[in-house]
Every structure is written in C-alpha cells, then in structure tokens.
Amino acid sequence: MILQKLTVLTFMVINIIAAAQNNKKEMSKLIRNEFEFAEKQYKYLIKSVPPDKMPQSYNASSNKITTRDITWWCSGFYPGSLWMIYEQTNDPEIKKEAERTLKIIEPNKTFTRDHDLGFMMFSSFGNAYRITKDPAYKEVILTSAESLSTRFKPGMQAILSWDKMADFKGPVIIDNMMNLELLMWATKNGGSKKTEEIAITHANTTIKNHFRPDYSSYHVIDYDVNTGKVLGKKTFQGYSDSSAWARGQGWALYGYTMMYRFKKNEKYLNQARHIAKFILNNPTLPEDKIPYWDFNDPKIPEVPRDASAGAIIASALLELGQYVEKDERANYADAARQMIVSLSGDKYRSQLGENGGFLLKHSTGGLPLNSEIDVPLIYADYYFLEALKRYKDWYLQ
C-alpha cells in the first residue's frame, strides 16, 4: 500500500514537472512569435506616422491612423514600444525610427503643464537609456524629472495632475502613480534627492485618500491646493464616482508595485497585493481575464472591454510576483499568463497589416467622453510588449 501511494505520488510530481516544462516551451514560443509579429506590424505602422506627430489609434471607417502632437500624454509610448521591439529583434529599421522619434519628443523634457512627464519621457528615453546606455538619454530623463517636480504642491502633499478646471480645484488622478517612476529613477541615477522625496510623499498621500475599503481606487481626488483638504472623490473617465474604472485599478497596481521596487517599503507591497486581490477576485472579471472598461458598469457583459487595462495589469502582476512567496508568485504569474495568451489570440491581436499597424484591438480610452471606444491604443501595445518581455526575463529563465 505504501509503495502504491509512493508510485502515485511520483507520477503526480512527474506530471506537474512535465506540465510546467511544456508551459514554458509554449510561452517561449508565443513570446518569440509575438515580438516577430510586432517587428513586422510596426514596420507597417511606421509608414503612416507623420514626421512631427505620434500615433494614437486607428480609425477603421477612414482606414487611417490618428495622431497627436508631442505634448499629448501618450507621446512616449510609440518610441518606447519601438525600443522594446528592437531589443528583442535587433532590427535596424526599428531602431532608426526609435531614434528619430526621440528627437521629436525631446523638447518635452521642459514641459510642465501637466503631470505626464513619466509617461512621455520615461517610457521613451527610459527604455532607450536602459538598452543603449547613451548618456545623452540619461540627461533628458534627469531634466524631465526636475520639470515634473515643479508640479508638486506642498499644501496638498501631492503632484497636481491637471491645472484648475471648472469641475476640479486641485485634481490628482490615480494615473499619476505611474509618473513617480521617473522621479524615483532620477534620484537613484544621479538626480536630486528632492524628486524621490516628492514621489514618496505623493504615494503616501494617494494611499491615504484614493482607496476604498475594498482597495479599489477612485479616479480623481479633488484637493484644496493650499490646505490639502479633500473636496471631492470623483471620476473623469469611469462609469461613476464610486465605480472601479478598470485602467485606473491597473495604474494603482503597477504604481505601488513599482514603489516597492525602489523603496522596499512593506506598506507599498501590501497595497499592491490588496489591489491585485480586488482585481483578480472581482466577480465581473471575465474568464479570459481581460476586464470590461469599468468593473462596476451595470450593463456588463454588454459593454466594451479594455485590452489596455489587461496589458497593464498583466505587466504589473509579473513584477509583483517577484516580491512575494512561491505560491502567491505562481498565482500572479498564472493570471498574467492567461492575460497574455488572451491578448495574443485572434480576439484581441491584429492580423498582419490590419488595424493600422497597431498590435492590439478592443481598448477603451474614455467611454463617458465618447472617446477612443473599442479601438487600438498605443499604450495598450506598449504594456503588452512590456508584459511579454517581463514574462520572458522573469519566468522563462
């Protein structure tokens, strides 16, 4: 009897090991194929990008890509995506376009009119410097961090996202957590201590005011700029003030995971774990793990998905898995793997030459604003590529 049980146990272990090895082979092949596809698809996109603008999306009715000026908050994602594709493929045409676009957006290093310097300059120049170690790129990053730091308001202990608007006195959006990476990196790489201090203060203020008891995040907290008093907890892009806008939950998860990477403060790690639990255990999260645009839209499932939120969450979960124990790491990795597999499938990923040259379909930018609904978005591509790279680097070695 004992021998029989040991034999059964041995076979179970062998099967588990074999399944894990097979899974690694499948993911290795998938990731290799996705980067090879991205290389070809972005060569198609390159042909449509004007010399002085950055790609935003694709209009199927006109069969043309839509583009924006360089001060648009997403202007760094196209260069950043190109650099990640080049890193995996060594394609000289991709590198040439990546270098060209950096020159176009470099003037943003002194841009101070909103909080998005991290998206604009770290997604782009950050990847370029990581790959090439060109000191000129580093200087652009450090200058950008100083520019972003000018938006810190001591009275409210946070970085002002947008300037005063009709509906907001001192708006701070959860998206702003993503821009803290620029500030943290700058201090660690020769910049002033001030930028890190600002990032930490902002992250702590956001923990205090942005989250509900279930660890879902409000989109916008409106402050009195001088006193820091909370004037309102609202939304700009979500279903309602009290709803959990999907991409916002992704920004929160990614932001606190990143803050833990730099500071190893357990408060940030625990915040990220709680946010991950809210997302992964949410009853409205579909089987394919790509969320609807807002977790609380009462019309689910008859509402748009947001592939960009899925890509951001997948990338964040893969990093979060680096900082936790084995079983929890496996849980995050498995959820991220399911998201990557879904995004790589026919439902979400383009065919070669279609979709204007973008990689992913079915993202939702601002549904209440009637903007970017069920379309490709450049930042969905960026975080999808980052998730692929992270899975390869951290889970296939």
Rank of each mutant, 00 (worst) to 15 (best):
N22E: 13
G118R: 04
W245Y: 01
K103T: 12
L285Q: 04
Y254N: 07
E325T: 06
A307I: 00
D374E: 12
E287P: 01
H219R: 13
E325R: 10
N15M: 13
D297S: 09
A128C: 05
A136C: 01
A380V: 00
M165H: 05
E325D: 15
I31H: 03
E302V: 12
Y254P: 06
K193F: 10
K47R: 15
M165S: 15
K188N: 11
T206L: 07
D297C: 05
D163G: 11
D374M: 07
I70K: 08
D134G: 06
L182S: 09
I279S: 06
Q4N: 13
K103P: 03
Y42E: 08
T112E: 13
F119P: 03
T150K: 14
D327T: 12
L369T: 08
Y137G: 05
Y391T: 05
T10K: 14
F278L: 05
I340Q: 01
V13L: 15
V375Y: 02
V225D: 04
D346M: 03
R390D: 05
V172T: 04
M84D: 06
L3I: 07
F278K: 10
N226W: 02
V140P: 07
Q41E: 13
F111C: 06
Y395T: 05
E354A: 12
A380T: 00
A314H: 01
Q338T: 14
T235Y: 08
T364Q: 10
N331T: 15
K264E: 12
M27R: 09
R329I: 00
F384E: 00
I105Q: 02
N108W: 00
